[in-house]
Every structure is written in structure tokens, then in C-alpha cells.
């Protein structure tokens, strides 16, 4: 069997803290590397991040390529692309995994275009298998199956890359499971000393703000979600009240976000966040496939909708065909009675 190149994860860090998506990718990358009988490498770029490789080794990296340089403090596309491009030409990795974040989705296509290499966006699963390339009458052994929703989530497509490596993908946040860290794991650290020209540095980050407490729907236990059927931004207070009462978080469908009822950070669905809470209460959400893609794996789903034919009822465990304006206050009332009636 020919030797495959390494599996790589392009790790993201924010002021020295490794991003959760990168840990997800390392966990998945380990699995792919073992399957291909090759090693798992990670490339991490930034400034004053000497402690980050340690973290990457813990989750299963064999090699970490570290580019620690003042010009890499904040992500900008040109110098980051240059570093990974040069390293990739030298090391010839088999697979490169990026997070489907605003960084990964900016960097990966730029790199793919100059390498050039095939790139698949926003994958939700990755597998290794043989592909029978009927066009060129050959079999691609142990190739990467890149699985992603397409066509607005109505189709699940399996994409293969028929060109020479690297095979590049961006992977959706929150879909790959994190494996347990092992502090005893060690790996090989490779320092990269990049050099930049004036042209590489024409893009500058003047200011960067991230809100302290980012909405974290991924880890929510209970989510109360509103759709277009909620009717108005004002009426969304019902959704907030129910969430508050049950100790849950608030989310919305794309239609609710587009209508301005709720901020886009709270969007659940194909272009928003994928969630797996213990309880998902869909209020006034019709259940378009794009929305279902982001919540269908919830442990229990309650659907409240005036239209008894709404597709959401097909995946709900409990269906309430009724007006949310009446149903939600009833739920709040009943839950608050809990102290007296249930105990």
C-alpha cells in the first residue's frame, strides 16, 4: 500500500485559547489518520502561543507545526495563506481539515485556489472508503468521503476529490465529537519561521470586538425556538418568557431572523447553529428542511403550530396543533404550578 501523507488540522486560537472547533477536528482527524495509517499533524498560527501545541498533543496530534510571529497575531488571509501554502508544498499532506468558521471559510478557499486543490465546504461527516471513478475508469483507494447537506439541506451529498492531495474540507462547528484529552500524550513540535513581504501585510485588523458571553446554543439543555409564526419581534417576548421559566435558551429559525424578530447569532438550522438539546420547543416554526437539519437530533421535540399539516410535526415527539399565543401562557402557568401539584 502506498504511503499516505499526514492528516492535518488547521487549528484556530483566540488570544492563546484553542478554539473548540479545532479540538473537534483533532478528535476526528485522529480517527482518519489511524484509518489511513498515517500521522496527525496540526498547524497553528499566531503570536505568543507557545503553550498551544501542548493542548493539541493532549487531544491526539503527533506533530504540531507552530508559526509564532508578530505578523500573525490576528488572522488575516494573506500571511496565513502563505505560511500554510509553503508548508503544504513541502510536507504534502493527504487531507487538510479547517473549521467552517469565518476564518476557515476565508482561508481554505484562498489556499485551495492557489495550490490548486479540491475543497468541500461545511461538511457534517467524513469517512474513508473506496471510490469507483467511472469517468476515468479507476478506483480511488481509501479516499475521503466528504458528506454535507446541499441544495438548501434538501439533499445530503457525498463529495469526493479526484485530484492529487491535499483533499481539503471545512467542517461545521459542533458536529464532530470531542474525544477525551490525555495529558500524558506527547508529540513532535516543529517551529516554522515565516518571512513576509510588504505585499503579504497590506491587510490590517484595526479593531476587533467579540462579545464576552457568546450565545452558546450548542451546549444548551433546553431550547425554546420561535419562527415566523411568532408574528413580531414584540411577540417574541413569549418565547423568552417560556425559556426563562423552563431555564432554557432562546433560538429562532432563519425566517424569524430574516424578519428581524431575533438576532442571527441565535439562528438554528443549516446556516445557523446545529443543536442537540434534551428538549427543543419549536413555536410557530413550519419545519423547513434547513431548520430541521439543525435540530432534528434533539432528544425530545415539542412542536406548537397552528397548521396541523406543518412538516415540523413529522419529526416532533409531541405535537400541539394550536395557537402559540394561547399554548405558551398555558405551559408557563402549568410549569409554575409544579411546586404545588407535582411534588
Amino acid at each position: 500500500m502506498e504511503n499516505k501523507g499526514e492528516v492535518w488540522v488547521i487549528a484556530e486560537q483566540d488570544e492563546g485559547k484553542l478554539a473548540e472547533i479545532s479540538i473537534e477536528l483533532v478528535s476526528k482527524g485522529r480517527e482518519l489518520a489511524d484509518r489511513l495509517n498515517t500521522s496527525l499533524g496540526s498547524v497553528v498560527l499566531g503570536h505568543n502561543i507557545k503553550h498551544v501545541p501542548e493542548e493539541l498533543f493532549k487531544y491526539g496530534c503527533d506533530v504540531v507545526y507552530l508559526a509564532d510571529h508578530p505578523n500573525l497575531e490576528y488572522y488575516t488571509v494573506l500571511p496565513y495563506t502563505k505560511v500554510i501554502y509553503n508548508l503544504s508544498k513541502k510536507q504534502k499532506p493527504e487531507i487538510i481539515l479547517f473549521g467552517a468558521t469565518t476564518t476557515g471559510r476565508d482561508l481554505a478557499p484562498r489556499l485551495a485556489s492557489i495550490l490548486p486543490a479540491g475543497l468541500t465546504a461545511d461538511c457534517t461527516d467524513l469517512k474513508i472508503g473506496d471510490y469507483n471513478d467511472a469517468r476515468l475508469k479507476r478506483i480511488l483507494k481509501d479516499t475521503l468521503f466528504q458528506i454535507r447537506p446541499a441544495f438548501g439541506g434538501n439533499v445530503i451529498a457525498t463529495i469526493v476529490n479526484t485530484w492529487d492531495p491535499p483533499k481539503m474540507v471545512t467542517v461545521r462547528e459542533g458536529v464532530m465529537k470531542i474525544s477525551a484529552p490525555d495529558s500524558n500524550r506527547k508529540g513532535k513540535l516543529v517551529d516554522i519561521n515565516p518571512e513576509f513581504s510588504e505585499k503579504d501585510l497590506i491587510t490590517k485588523v484595526i479593531k476587533r470586538t467579540k462579545s464576552e458571553k457568546r450565545v452558546n446554543l450548542k451546549n444548551a439543555r433546553i431550547i425554546v425556538s420561535g419562527g415566523f409564526g411568532v408574528g413580531s419581534k414584540d411577540n417574541f417576548r413569549l418565547i423568552y418568557e417560556l425559556a426563562h421559566t423552563l431555564g432554557g435558551d432562546v433560538a429562532g429559525s432563519r425566517a424569524a431572523v430574516d424578519a428581524g424578530f431575533i438576532e442571527s447569532e441565535r439562528q438554528v438550522g443549516q446556516t445557523g447553529t446545529t443543536v442537540r438539546p434534551k428538549l427543543y420547543i419549536a413555536c410557530g416554526i413550519s419545519g423547513a428542511v434547513q431548520h430541521r437539519a439543525g435540530m432534528a437530533e434533539s432528544h425530545k421535540i415539542i412542536a406548537i403550530n397552528k397548521d396541523p399539516k406543518a412538516p415540523i410535526f413529522k419529526i416532533a415527539h409531541y405535537g400541539i396543533a394550536g395557537d402559540l399565543n394561547q399554548v405558551i401562557p398555558m405551559m408557563i402557568k402549568v410549569y409554575k404550578e409544579k411546586g404545588t401539584h407535582f411534588l
Partner: peptide, 12 residues
């Protein structure tokens, strides 16, 4: 470089 190897319609 990329090819769609398989496309499955999503069912409810």
C-alpha cells in the same frame, strides 16, 4: 477536482 459521488434526498 470535486465530484458528487452520491446525493440522497432528505426525507422527513
Amino acid at each position: 477536482p470535486t465530484r458528487v459521488a452520491k446525493a440522497e434526498n432528505v426525507q422527513l
